[in-house]
Design a protein around this nucleic acid. Structure first.
Lengths: 240, 240
DNA sequence: AAACTTAGCGTAAAAAATACGTTAACTATT
DNA sequence: AATAGTTAACGTATTTTTTACGCTAAGTTT
């Protein structure tokens, strides 16, 4: 490895995506491509992450992990929480894997967890190499990564109440139905469609575009887009 | 020092207190008690913090810092954010001080910032040794501690909207006026007293006690207390 | 006893949230 | 060509919450 690592601090990213049906989280199978004897036994799924380079900003390390994996930049990325228990690496499989992956003897890593929101329909270099796990059903993962995912879900559910995060997960053009479905999935409750429309009709940053659904066996829905500039302007005005 | 340190990860605590008039943050003067020639030049004020011990949970380190300083336990304490820029220690004074304080050559520390809320009127062992700085006016501090304080204020302002954090800052018994004043200071805006009373009258966890103000030159105010159990019960019911 | 000061209640109006029914526009099927 | 099936999109009445604003109460000081 060319770059010097800081063997004490890592970053891990909980990357969320929405496929129209359900909320997914990106997981990596650390056994993928390894010969059977090199593989670690169960819980081979983990979050994407990396040690922080020796002279690298921690936040930058998270951006790097995202870029390397998805090819995407300018993604919504937030610090989630630090996981700093001294026995985070207590499972033997995890320790072994870490040693092989970093070629260092490590017995403690404090990790800074981030969560990111991406538009799932975009083509990504990691396609086929990663697992998009449904967030309704998170299996046991490597290290304390299951806890991290759950913490990420909690944070997303909270933040989505106050910030228009859903637009980071939806495609550029979307219908009101898609918007409502996504809110319903994240918040885990149903909305009355008529009242939902009424409430979002106040959002000046939600703009209809000159396009409708096609080839659907029902009345085609209007497409909308998120006007980020309008949103930021309104937010600024609000604070003045 | 008897305990082995992890020279890469530290914790820093933004400790808030309310004296009835204004919101304060606890700062330490690192020159205090040093002979003049040993003192570091300007910006000698810093947040309380510590390196994380080698086998210590990061959260536990923050609890320890709080306990050592204030003697208090079971304090409201939340992770705030990680400050992980590689040039956090860029000021020469800061590096020198760190070297003296830890007796180690350190060129990078990732710090996990926490914020804590305490009841200011309680007696504390650190009394006289620390500075309670008004949050309206935070001077330049050591390291990036000014940024950390500002981040702490932002987090407090946000959280106070959704959680009854104010009761961690108020004395056990308090008046509605004190409660309102604290909200006004944290949120930086005024409330209509009549409407304020109306809105809090729905809070079932806010309970009048059998005591009123004494020796005040006006109608004495009713004292109230925060019923934490009732709050937790109501919160639990809400999520079911 | 009069003046001063903050506590504490109440009502009317506006805004937001909730509950609920019907028509519109398309495709697929006969 | 007509019918059935499906989701889009709109509107109104009711309840709840928020906002705006005025007056009396209960102490201390002079």
């Amino acid at each position: 490895m060319a770059v010097k690592l800081n063997p004490h601090v890592s970053v891990d990213c909980v990357i969320f995506g929405f496929d129209g049906q359900s909320l997914k989280v990106l997981l990596i199978d650390r056994n993928l491509g390894l010969t059977p004897e090199k593989q670690t036994a169960p819980n081979s799924l983990k979050l994407p992450g990396s040690m922080v380079y020796d002279d690298e900003d921690v936040d930058t390390a998270a951006v790097r992990v995202l870029k390397e994996l998805t090819g995407l930049e300018n993604i919504y990325l937030q610090q989630l929480k630090v996981f700093g228990s001294p026995d985070r690496l207590s499972k033997k499989d995890d320790l072994d894997w870490l040693q092989k992956a970093t070629r260092m003897t490590i017995n403690r890593v404090v990790t800074v967890a981030y969560y990111a929101l991406i538009k799932l329909h975009k083509a990504m270099p990691c396609e086929g190499k990663v697992i998009w796990q449904d967030t309704q059903n998170i299996p046991e993962l490597a290290f304390d990564h299951r806890d991290i995912v759950i913490e990420g879900l909690t944070a997303l559910r909270k933040e989505v109440q106050y910030e228009p995060l859903v637009f980071e997960l939806l495609p550029k053009k979307f219908t009101i139905r898609q918007l409502q479905t996504l809110y319903e999935i994240i918040e885990g409750r149903k909305f009355d469609n008529r009242n939902f429309r009424k409430s979002i009709s106040r959002w000046q940053y939600l703009q209809p575009i000159d396009e409708k659904e096609k080839n659907v066996a029902h009345k085609p829905a209007q497409f909308y887009r998120f006007d980020k500039r309008a949103y930021q302007r309104l937010k600024k005005e609000f604070f003045e």
